[in-house]
């Protein structure tokens, strides 16, 4: 199923109304964030893994911005995540341990790399993009490996000391400060991302995704838009990486590894592409499954994860979410046929 094509016959007013309607906060969304906030108080024992979920969720949102909304496939999104992590780690070690400054620096560094490499991504179609993004991540990984005087190489970056958050909250061993910090950052960035995708800019991205020739024909500056969203997405990934470095106070080469890129793609596929909550829901399912299965069978949990993924794909996540949406619509008295923000894009990687 495709979104209703963006028709030029719609008047500006109609477009604005439609955007505003889609941009409105639904009850489900409010509940989602309330539940997330509640975990801060009701699940004190699980803050460490929740922190990881929040970080992966943010990383997935970042990938969704380019994959789900602009149609740029990537197998190397870890490049930005890793650069953010290393920059945040090195910044904390060499300059100052203030978390927020470090996070901003990490985001800017990743954005710069994103901007620089976005021009490579503009060239070619999906397969080329897969290869280019993969290549960028491999190059970044090898640089981090070789520059061991700066990054610690394969032994990892050690000795990161973080200052207290806002000068008040020390990072504790229970991970509570870390989780609260990551959750707030996630929320703020999520709101921004939500604003972006429901803006005319976001709409133009979607039209590029669906048919870039036609988008160009109606006067959308395709390349500039893609560069912009790729840079924004890189900044998001960098901030996610920065959060990981700051909250675990350790960075290893692994942040740039291929499996990070693959995992985040998996998370997005589980949760749903082209739908911001998809990344968050996917992150929750993926991490919780991983945690439960790996404590039950430390040796064979990957088998079960694989099996569940296959089942998920065969049963069709789209169909499952569709049904759930329908039920939700019935329950809350909204029309089940309300315009959907998530176009089903099966058959695309």
């Amino acid at each position: 199923m495709q979104d209703k094509p963006f028709m030029s016959s719609l008047t500006t007013d109609e477009v604005a109304t439609s955007l505003r309607r889609k941009g409105r906060w639904g009850l489900g969304e409010v509940l989602f964030w309330l539940a997330a906030a509640a975990t801060l108080f009701f699940l004190p024992e699980r803050h460490l893994i929740l922190n990881e979920i929040a970080i992966i969720g943010l990383f997935a949102v970042s990938l969704d911005l380019i994959l789900g909304y602009a149609g740029i496939v990537s197998l190397g999104h870890a490049a930005f995540f890793g650069v953010g992590a290393y920059v945040a780690g090195i910044f904390a070690k060499e300059m100052t341990g203030d978390p927020l400054t470090g996070l901003a620096v990490a985001g800017v560094a990743a954005a710069l790399l994103g901007f620089a490499t976005s021009f490579l991504v503009l060239r070619g179609a999906d397969l080329t993009r897969l290869m280019v993004t993969l290549g960028v991540a491999l190059v970044a990984g090898e640089i981090a490996n070789q520059a061991s005087w700066l990054t610690g190489g394969a032994d990892g970056l050690q000795g990161i000391m973080m200052g207290p958050l806002l000068g008040m909250f020390e990072f504790d061993i229970f991970g509570t400060t870390a989780y609260a910090y990551s959750l707030v950052v996630l929320f703020v960035l999520f709101v921004v991302a939500r604003r972006i995708v429901h803006s005319p800019f976001g709409l133009s991205l979607r039209s590029i995704r669906d048919n870039s020739l036609r988008a160009r024909a109606v006067g959308i500056p395709v390349n500039r838009r893609l560069v912009a969203i790729y840079t924004i997405s890189a900044a998001y990934a960098g901030i996610a990486g920065g959060l990981l470095a700051q909250t675990t106070q350790f960075v290893s080469l692994d942040v740039l590894a291929f499996h990070r890129s693959a995992d985040v793609l998996l998370v997005l596929v589980i949760g749903g592409v082209g739908y911001l909550y998809g990344g968050l829901i996917g992150a929750v399912i993926f991490k919780v499954l991983q945690d439960i299965l790996s404590s039950m069978t430390p040796q064979y949990w990957q088998f079960w994860i694989g099996l569940i993924l296959v089942v998920l794909v065969l049963a069709g996540r789209e169909r499952l979410t569709e049904r759930a949406r329908f039920l939700a619509g019935r329950l809350f008295g909204r029309s089940a046929g309300a315009p959907r923000t998530a176009p089903a894009r099966e058959g695309r990687p």
């Binding site: 989602f32 539940a35 009701f42 909550y277 929750v284 399912i285 919780v288 979410t321 039920l327």
Partner: peptide, 15 residues
């Protein structure tokens, strides 16, 4: 609904 189911799963698992 779906979201809350997930939250439910998470909390149950955590418990």
């Amino acid at each position: 609904m779906l979201r809350r189911t997930f939250v439910g799963i998470v909390s149950a698992a955590a418990l």
